[in-house]
Structure formats: structure tokens, C-alpha cells
Nucleic acid binder design. Sequence first.
DNA 1: ATAAATTAATTGTTTCAACATATAATGTTC
DNA 2: GAACATTATATGTTGAAACAATTAATTTAT
Lengths: 149, 149
Amino acid sequence: MRIEDEIKGRFRNDYHKGMINMTYTVKQLSYDFLQLLKNHGLTEPQYNIMRVLRGNRSGRPASIGYIKERMLDKSSDVSRIIDRLHGKGYIDRTENSEDRRQKVIAITGKGLDLLDKMDDCEKKVDKLLENLGPDEVNELNRLLDKIRG
Amino acid sequence: MRIEDEIKGRFRNDYHKGMINMTYTVKQLSYDFLQLLKNHGLTEPQYNIMRVLRGNRSGRPASIGYIKERMLDKSSDVSRIIDRLHGKGYIDRTENSEDRRQKVIAITGKGLDLLDKMDDCEKKVDKLLENLGPDEVNELNRLLDKIRG
DNA sequence: ATAAATTAATTGTTTCAACATATAATGTTC
DNA sequence: GAACATTATATGTTGAAACAATTAATTTAT
């Protein structure tokens, strides 16, 4: 549906419309994804952190800062999100004896089990843009990269 | 810059990449805009509500529900955002004698003055996508509309 | 005309973003 | 090695999103 029809209100020009359109589309797609996450009791940043921890094959232990670097949202409040995941038993948090300022964060067996059960969430992400053909997705990626300069 | 280089981590496929790319791009553009708003002491939803109120040439008084319909974020907590704007003196809020469930929300002179001074914010929105040519913006809008089906 | 359903707005709760500040450990410099 | 700077994390605060639940006014149904 055209964005003009979904949101009451007018746009000054196509550039204005483009920005609103993008914001609105991301919001709508994220919502669909969020509903799935909620079935498993996780929020989006919680899920992202769990995936970062599972994906850590770097050999190095993951610190708060390591996780932060890999989050979409760099200003994200990793300390407190880790708190909540720890409370649910999905994460271990120990002091790093190499550098006692750092914490060593690791996903637990319980956390890994949960992620395994959340396979449908990964599949969902790959389907959010399914209305576009392969060429169109590439064109979208090109335009987005160009926007950011 | 290509999204692969800005975010550490890999994508399963172009569809996955497209969704992350869009989310990340919106986040970055919104941040630029937010900084401008902050100079004027408003948050994004506060600014949006003020603009809806200024733009209300419908003759009808604006209720909470009227504003909600025109917000990008339909689940937005208009009541409490209105509270804060009222606290700053930018909005009047009175009971609607026609239907005493409703409130009549109106922007004050002080609010209008503020919006006039925030001209730079409107200009900024129109420039967020300036890296794209006119045809590219149209193509972007077409793709976004198609994504939402 | 009264009861039931709907609507408009408010309030409460949890989680998070964005920001500032604090605290403790480690590095650097003189 | 003592003073200072930097780094890693934690904490505090405000504003907001996403829900649920509540309250009060209006509409509908019987």
C-alpha cells in the first residue's frame, strides 16, 4: 500500500516522503519480528546479544565492550540487558582475571537450547522482504548504502 | 559505505542484509535529526505531535485519538507525551464539552513560536536522502511500498 | 429505561535508549 | 613510584515503546 494512504498527512516532497516511508516500513517489519521473539520471552536487544555470544568463535572471551561493538545500536545499554539475561539463566558473567575491569560473558547451555528453539526467528528475518525479487533487494541495498554515503 | 564494512558480522543472504541495512540506515539518519531536535529541547515524538497540531486545519478540534492516527507510531503513548508538552507550555489541554471523554488539544502561541524557530529541522529532513537522485528516491519509495505489500 | 458494549483517555509496569556521572582497574608520564 | 589519564563497567535519570488494566462517558441493544 502507498505510504500516503497508510499515514494521514501529506509530504513536502519525495525526499521527505522517502524518509518517512523508510521509518514506517522498518517499524512495521520490526513489529512482525518482535511478536515472534516475544513467544520465546526475549526482547530484540536480548536476542541480539544472545546471538553475538553464540557466534563468538573468536577464541577470546566476550566482554561487555566486545558485545557492544557488534550491536546495531552502539549506544545500547549492554550492562543492564546482560543483567536481565543473567537473571533468566541464559548467560554466565564472571570477572576476567586478566583484566579485572572486564567481565567474561558467556552463553549457558540453557541459552543455547533457547536459541536452537528460536530457529523460526531467523527464518522470519529472511522472509521480511520476500515481496521483493532478488534484483530488487540488491537495488535496495545499493540505495541504502548510497544514502549513508 | 557498504553495510558489511560498518557492522562486524556476516549476513546469511541479501534479504537478511537488506533488513539489517534498512534498520541501520534509519537509525543513523534518525540520530542526525535527533541531535537537531535536541537543540530545541524536543524529542522526536514531541516534535511530531506539535507538527500534527499546527497542521490541523480540519476545523475539528484535535483529540488524543486524532493525534494518534497521525503518528508514525500508532502505539505511541500520546497521553503522557502531551503531559510533558503541556508542562513546557507548548500545548493547551481542555475537556471537550461535546464529548466529555475527549480532550481538546491545541498548540499555544509559545508552541507555534518554537516551531517557527525549528525551520532548520524541516530542512534537515528533506536533506537526509540528498545522496540519492530524484529517480532513485522514487525507486526507493516504490520498493518500500512493495515490501509492505 | 436499564443493562451491556464500546470508546477515549489515563495509569501502571517492564524494558530500553540516550545521556551523564561514578567507580574501579589499568596504563602512562614524569 | 606517585600523579594523571584512560578504559571497562555500572549506576542514575528522563523519555519513550509496548503492553495490560482501569475509569469514565457515550452508544447500542433489549
